[in-house]
Amino acid sequence: MMLTASGLTLPGRLFGASIAIAAGELVCLVGPNGSGKTSLLHALAGIGGAPGTVALEGADPRRLGPALRPASLTYLPASRDIAWPLLARDLIALGGGGADFPELELAPLLDRRLDSLSTGERSRVLIARALAPQPKLLLLDEPTANLDPLWRIRLMALVRSELRAGNRAALVAIHDLDAAARYGDRIVVMDRGRIAAEGLDGPQVAQIFGVERGDGGWRELKPGADPRSSP
């Protein structure tokens, strides 16, 4: 396994979570609101100093300083807010990477200030910041949020092609279960701060999300009753 992590703990949010990801693998992380997806990404990225072990190709990336860390892992937060009105090209450069992604069609945006971009355009710039160092491990929190359908497809195809390029892997937190099924090599389901299941087909998954697959897509399980409130 390229990445192995175990015993990751953040008080109240993450209770000894463990995960392993193989080289080239795109793992989608799904779970209800508050299930600990972002906390798991934080713990792996070294944000907030969660106890537990992380090994990326045998070494703990959380020990690396600012000079080496971006080549090891990058993290895209769910928030698209940036406090200062930097130029798009400057923001990407601050991420410490030099790679260029024609697929993101950033050329017309590079010399514009972030506050003049739409949320979707800003998302593409922030995604480019996370991709540019070409890290071994990509940790992306809701990368397709704010993107239109075409850009969702293009973005996930880009992440996929980046993984093909070498000894790299991605863990992507995503709410859209269909997108997770379409793009993920594997789906990891989180519930209440723990890894609860793999894949979307088990009966447990319907219980966790409170939804089930029907003819017209996902629909609420047992209308009126929250399955999460009963054991």
């Binding site: 990225a45 944000i47 860390r69 993290y75 937060p77 601050l94 991420g95 910041r129």
Partner: peptide, 19 residues
């Protein structure tokens, strides 16, 4: 200065970059 510039990416991103 360089660390404060990267803090512009957000506190979490700065931390994930090793600051």
């Amino acid at each position: 200065g360089p660390a404060l510039d990267r803090l512009a990416l957000g506190e979490e991103v700065a931390q994930s970059m090793g600051h």
